[in-house]
Design a protein around this nucleic acid. Structure first.
Length: 892
RNA sequence: GGGCGAUUGGCUCAGUCGGUUAGAGCGCACGGUUCACAUCCGUGAGGUCACUGGUUCGAAUCCAGUAUCGCCCACCA
């Protein structure tokens, strides 16, 4: 019988193996679900959070892809109707930011090109960059169904956006209105609250005299009210001065008028609870068009709103003498002018919170404008109920509180953006001011209100916030609004896995829109992962220069190693530090698995003569351990405990399979007294368990496991059960545990470890063979030692083994395990340390026995603790006492 | 200002339903050319589980408070 035996390299060479394996998966079309769902199969669907089209792969993408790929591969192997759908997000503001920079280098700009040419240019840019992120995901080993790749700017998404907005409009949940919004003067667009990032900064608090108006309306040079402000450049927009109604200092001034500097406008002095008496001077200027608080005060008091800053945050003509100046230039000049006029009373540094644009860092300006909003109240209520009532759960669970808190305090969503790259809002205006919203691609035929023909209507120029189309992602990708087969088959999805950072941006919006538009929760579980930080715990950022490029890491150690590093020991929702030692650990593990397989495949007896053979201790033990590992790994994956899964397979592979089992297999393969059938059996067990181990490992290290699979199958067809590709192989069913065998093995390995400890203590050369004397604790123990002797001898490197029957004089180096008392026939000169170790061992036993006696002697314990707990402790004490007695210790 | 979370060996992190010897990897010490792997093997040291109080026969685990750190949200100009 001849077999093709592959020569595997002594080291796992990721760079050589991984791309070839990925190509094999692609050739086999292994990522795509079957055309028809397998009968009785449960769907398991993850829609990939679409990475930004402009972004390069970072560790966050890698973590996302790894966690999702692990879940997907597991379910695919279980035979579920599994779909993992990839996508790319058009990222309007981010994409414009990038393109604008490129254009600037070419001496062009948004303005110089105009909307149509700009968008043309954007599409060219898209064509050039759109595939990059996908190609990068392939290097991670992501088993995404590329045949279903979607883009948030494709026609499917565009249609979904139009239909979604039309439904919101028809339901009265979309409206247009004037309001104060966050405006980024550099991006020249509205941004949402979430994109307005608050920073603690030191500014200046100025106290400025506003002179009171005399009856004739002129300023009284001798009477004034002093207001505190951090924004003197908005003085021109002041339409009131406010004080607290209970503030005695100003009681007499309420109802009088103050004169705004420079513009000499008379404004009322009003009383409003919003004013903090203890802050500043207790009097505040009210600028309704440039401050969210003041806006509300203005509403309450019916104050006029004067806009003094334009789209570029330059002072408008309302700013007499300062018009045209940028807000930052204007500020010091205005302060100077006030000082010159003698109206600047005070100037002091002030800690304050400043909002800056998430994208460009520019100070955000509250700006009065007419905008499109989504009324989120009713949407949020449903989205909140879904989580409260458990129809969608969030992992880790404490984020449910965060989610609820946000949903309860949610503000209407300003969905319009004054940008060009994105989905244009499908609203048309007629000259009479009517609004027509349609989901027809070609636009409306006529004004819905007055019937004016389409030619007289003008479409809204604003586009949607990127997150509007993202909010439709779980169903727009499956064909919604059409009732497509994919939508019926795969929606709602199972797991939404993403970074906790975008819980509000994205997850909340998908919940709200999904429930409104499809009447179903778009996913059953939200799995949030944390941020990958640098080894010191800092967030990775380009400016800090501490960014780790996953692709470089993969070049170095391989994708599987990076995957192990990122998912091991990482709980959901918790930030992690990626250290070099974690990456090295991942690499070492891939290499360990590779080499274990190399050994097994290379150790195949030739010829392999199968025949009747008995299941030995090693075989029974490893099968039992495998059953345990399979059950635990499966359970961990079912509960989305990815780190627990990784830890389980790591421990089983390294400790059980490699450290103990393979060492025992070596013994069995080299036995001279064994039959060929016995050797064949020992090897086949090793190969078959390796097969199941590879199945368990596959989601964690898909490349290595797949690379080994084929050569293993060639050497041992029963190990792979004829399944050609591991990615499509069946997930193992947990077998039966064998507690007796596990106990026997635990006792044996305990003895091996104790002997090794004695050897180390005695300074015995590692290679030396020593006689071992054992006095078994009883006849049963003696039988167990005899049964395990063939492993005990080589693993502990002891020979010969003396099993004493009766009482024998014990040397001071004697130590004990549950199997009995033992000592080594070592050179007496080297035995001092061993004797000390043995003495320490005895005193440890004594201390434990002491503790247990105290516990069991406590009536409260024996009476109140559960019977099984008491019995267990009793048994432990009995065992300890037996060991002590066998060592000649009478302390009991 | 409100909310959420964390605190476990030198480091990074696990720790199930409360059960009496708290685990892992890295690091450290010692020993190793045992024919899969030195990206390895073996052995060992190292923790009063942040602190205080409570519940309990029993607390890293449950409760209350304190301290420190971190994050999120928020309209004191």
């Amino acid at each position: 019988m001849t077999t093709t035996r592959r020569d595997l390299a002594p080291r796992y060479d990721a760079a050589a193996v991984e791309p070839a394996i990925y190509d094999r998966w692609l050739e086999a079309d292994a990522f795509r679900p079957a055309d028809e769902p397998p009968p009785g199969a449960e769907p398991f669907v993850i829609i990939q959070p679409p990475p930004n089209v402009t972004g390069a792969l970072h560790l966050g993408h890698a973590l996302t892809a790894f966690v999702e790929d692990i879940l997907i591969r597991h379910h695919r192997m279980r035979g579920d109707d599994t779909l993992w759908l990839p996508g790319v997000d058009h990222a309007s503001i981010a994409a414009q930011f990038v393109l604008d920079r490129i254009l600037a280098e070419e001496g062009e700009s948004r303005a110089s090109l105009g909307r149509d040419r700009y968008l043309e240019r954007m599409w060219q840019f898209m064509d050039a960059t759109r595939d990059v992120i996908g190609v990068q995901h392939r290097r991670l080993g992501a088993s995404l169904d590329w045949s279903r790749l979607r883009f948030t700017m494709d026609e499917g998404s565009a249609r979904a956006v139009r239909v979604a907005f039309k439904r919101l409009w028809d339901a009265g949940l979309a409206y247009r209105g004037e309001a104060l919004v966050n405006w980024c003067p550099r991006c020249r667009t509205t941004i949402s609250d979430l994109e307005n990032i608050k920073h603690e900064e030191t500014g200046t608090l100025w106290s400025v005299r506003y002179h009171l108006a005399r009856p004739d309306g002129t300023p009284d040079p001798d009477a004034w009210i002093t207001v505190a402000t951090t924004r003197p450049e908005t003085i021109f927009g002041d339409t009131a001065v406010a004080v607290h109604p209970d503030d005695d200092r100003y009681r007499g001034l309420v109802g009088r008028e103050a004169i705004i500097p420079f513009v000499d406008r008379r404004v009322p002095i009003i009383a409003d609870e919003h004013v903090e008496r203890d802050f500043g001077t207790g009097a505040v200027k009210i600028t309704p068009a440039h401050d969210f608080d003041d806006y509300e005060v203005g509403q309450r008091h019916g104050l006029p709103m004067v806009t003094v800053l334009d789209e570029d945050a330059r002072l408008t003509d309302a700013a007499t003498g300062f018009a045209g100046l940028d807000r930052h230039e204007a500020r010091p000049r205005i302060v100077d002018a006030l000082r010159a006029a003698g109206d600047l009373e005070d100037e002091r540094p002030h800690q304050m919170v400043i909002g800056r644009c998430d994208r460009c860092g520019t100070v955000v300006e509250p700006r009065l404008s007419v905008q499109w909003f989504v009324r989120v109240g009713p949407l949020a209520e449903r989205a909140l109920a879904s989580v409260r009532e458990g129809r969608t759960r969030i992992l880790p669970a404490h984020f449910e509180k965060v989610y609820a808190h946000w949903m309860e305090n949610i503000h209407d969503w300003a969905v319009g953006r004054q940008l060009w790259w994105g989905h244009r809002i499908p609203a048309w205006y007629c000259p009479d001011g009517h609004i027509t919203v349609t989901d027809a691609q070609a636009g409306p035929d006529a004004c819905a209100t007055c019937g004016r023909p389409a030619a007289e209507l003008a479409q809204e120029t604003d586009i949607f916030d990127t997150w509007f189309s993202s909010g439709l992602w779980p169903f727009s990708t499956l064909g919604w609004p059409d009732e497509t087969p994919d939508l019926a088959r795969f929606y709602p999805t199972q797991v939404m896995e993403t970074a906790y950072e975008i819980l509000f941006f994205w997850v909340a919006r998908m919940m709200m829109l999904g429930l409104f538009l499809t009447d179903r929760e778009p996913f059953h579980t939200v799995y949030l992962h944390g941020i990958v930080r640098d080894p010191t715990g800092s967030k990775m950022s380009k400016t800090r220069g501490n960014v780790v490029d996953p692709l470089e890491m993969i070049d170095e150690v391989g994708a599987d190693a990076l995957r192990v590093a990122l998912v091991s020991g990482n709980a959901p929702g918790v930030d992690q530090r990626l250290t070099p030692s974690k990456v090295t650990g991942g690499r070492n593990f891939t290499n360990k698995v590779w080499n274990a397989a190399r050994f097994v495949i290379g150790a195949r007896p030739d010829p392999l003569v199968e025949g009747p053979a008995e299941a030995g201790l090693a075989e029974r033990w490893i099968r039992s351990r495998l059953a345990d590992a399979t059950a635990r790994a499966t359970r961990a994956l079912e509960t989305l405990d990815v780190a627990g899964y990784a830890a389980t397979v790591h421990e089983f592979a390294w400790s059980d399979y490699c450290d103990w089992f393979l060492e025992m297999v070596k013994v069995d393969l080299r036995r001279t007294d064994a039959s060929e059938a016995d050797r064949a059996r020992a090897w086949l067990v090793a190969a078959e368990v390796l097969g199941d181990l590879l199945r368990l490992l596959h989601p964690l290290m898909p490349f290595v496991s797949e690379a080994i699979w084929e050569p293993l199958g060639e050497a041992a067809p029963t190990a792979t059960r004829g399944e050609p590709l591991l990615i499509r192989a069946a997930w193992p069913q947990p077998g039966e545990r064998d507690p007796d065998t596990e106990r026997d093995m635990a006792a044996l390995t305990d003895l091996v470890r104790s002997v090794r400890d004695q050897r180390t203590a005695a300074g015995v050369p590692a290679g030396a063979w020593l006689p071992l004397h054992v006095v078994p604790a009883g006849p049963a123990e003696g039988d167990r030692i005899a049964a395990g002797a063939r492993y005990l001898e080589p693993l502990a490197r002891v020979r010969p083994l003396h099993l004493a029957a009766g009482p024998v004089a014990r040397p001071p180096t004697a130590s004990s395990t549950s199997l009995g008392t033992f000592w080594l026939g070592a050179d007496p000169a080297a035995a001092d340390a061993a004797a000390a170790r043995a003495a320490a061992h005895r005193s440890g036993l004594r201390a434990q026995a002491e503790r247990l006696r105290a516990l069991l002697g406590n009536a409260a314990f024996s009476e109140r603790a559960p019977a099984d707990v008491v019995a267990r402790e009793r048994a432990r004490l009995a065992d300890l006492e037996a060991q002590l007695a066998a060592l000649g210790d009478d302390a009991s």
